[in-house]
Design a protein around this nucleic acid. Structure first.
Length: 288
DNA sequence: CTAGGATCCTGTCAGC
DNA sequence: TGCTGACAGGATCCTA
């Protein structure tokens, strides 16, 4: 569930707390959630590739963390503040570890809990030099900020028969978008998610690319969507969805632009939110 | 090669 | 209350 803005949020937080600190102990509560040999060593950097987080150690080894649908990372600074991001839930302010805790990483500054309800996410260890060759990392396309409009258009042409929503969810075509920001980007650029990728004009492709940048920048600036960031006793949270989402989880509510009722459908196997007026269906585009 | 569907796993919620 | 099926902010594997 966590998309690029949520992973960037946790990357920034963790950088503050664990860089120069030492990883001392790993406790694995679910074998499936941890691949490779547990590591110890001083943290030199926290990096991000798409939705994957990399923690580098001075030993020349790294941890790669992918939260997939329901992963969360919660850093507890020895009973002080917690810093958390990922799948939103009460776990952010719950007693830890709990039923969904899969791995516990202990640093000399605090404890990092990896929670994951559905066990799709994982932590794995590998030599730092092997990170770039990892099969997931290797397939990642550039992020929207790096990709030129011309490159994006060409990529869409290469997948001209796919639904546009499916193409922008494909991390090997453009990297960072997930279900929330795909829906928000398509709404912002007034493109129906079932449009064939090849049917977009250059102007529409550019508009979609700029929308993807904008919605994710806005989300990063607000600390992720419903992700908690600094979770103190009062449970202060990131609030992208409440403040900025135009369509995601707003089915049955009026479009903020035209008042038409937002509808929820299924596209590319995913729940999809649309304003039927602002995002005309493919045949209506043809007739226009 | 592309495109679409099933699948990994646990939990929750609507409907009977 | 208890059961059932649908669904969930992701990515991969399998099929045609």
């Amino acid at each position: 569930m966590p998309e690029l803005p949520e992973v960037e949020t946790i990357r920034r937080g963790l950088s503050q707390f664990i860089v120069t600190k030492k990883l001392t102990k790993t406790t694995i509560l679910c074998e499936k959630s941890f691949q490779g040999t547990p590591l110890t060593g001083t943290v030199t950097a926290v990096r991000r590739f798409g939705k994957a987080l990399i923690i580098d150690l001075a030993t020349g080894w790294s941890l790669m963390i992918h939260l997939r649908m329901t992963g969360q990372l919660i850093y507890d600074g020895h009973g002080k503040e917690r810093y958390a991001a990922g799948h939103p839930s009460d776990n952010f302010i719950a007693v830890l570890p709990n039923k969904q805790t899969r791995v516990i990483l202990e640093f000399d500054s605090g404890t990092l809990y990896f929670n994951d309800q559905r066990k799709f996410g994982f932590i794995k260890t590998l030599p730092t030099v092997a990170v770039a060759d990892d099969s997931f990392i290797k397939k990642l396309a550039p992020e929207p900020w790096v990709m030129s409009p011309a490159d994006f258009y060409d990529r869409l042409q290469r997948h001209h028969n796919s639904c546009i929503k499916a193409t922008i969810l494909d991390q090997s075509i453009i990297c960072g978008l997930g279900n929330i920001y795909a829906d928000e980007s398509l709404f912002m650029s007034h493109i129906h998610p079932e449009r064939r990728a090849g049917s977009l004009t250059r102007e529409e492709a550019t508009s979609l690319l700029l929308a993807a940048r904008a919605v994710m920048e806005q989300s990063i600036a607000s600390g992720g969507s419903t992700m908690a960031t600094y979770v103190k006793a009062d449970g202060t949270k990131g609030d992208y969805l409440e403040k900025f989402a135009q369509v995601f989880r707003r089915e049955g509510k009026p479009c903020r632009l035209c008042g038409t009722t937002i509808v929820k459908t299924r596209v590319a196997g995913r729940g999809t939110h649309i304003c039927p007026h602002c995002q005309p269906k493919p045949e209506e585009v043809q007739n226009a």
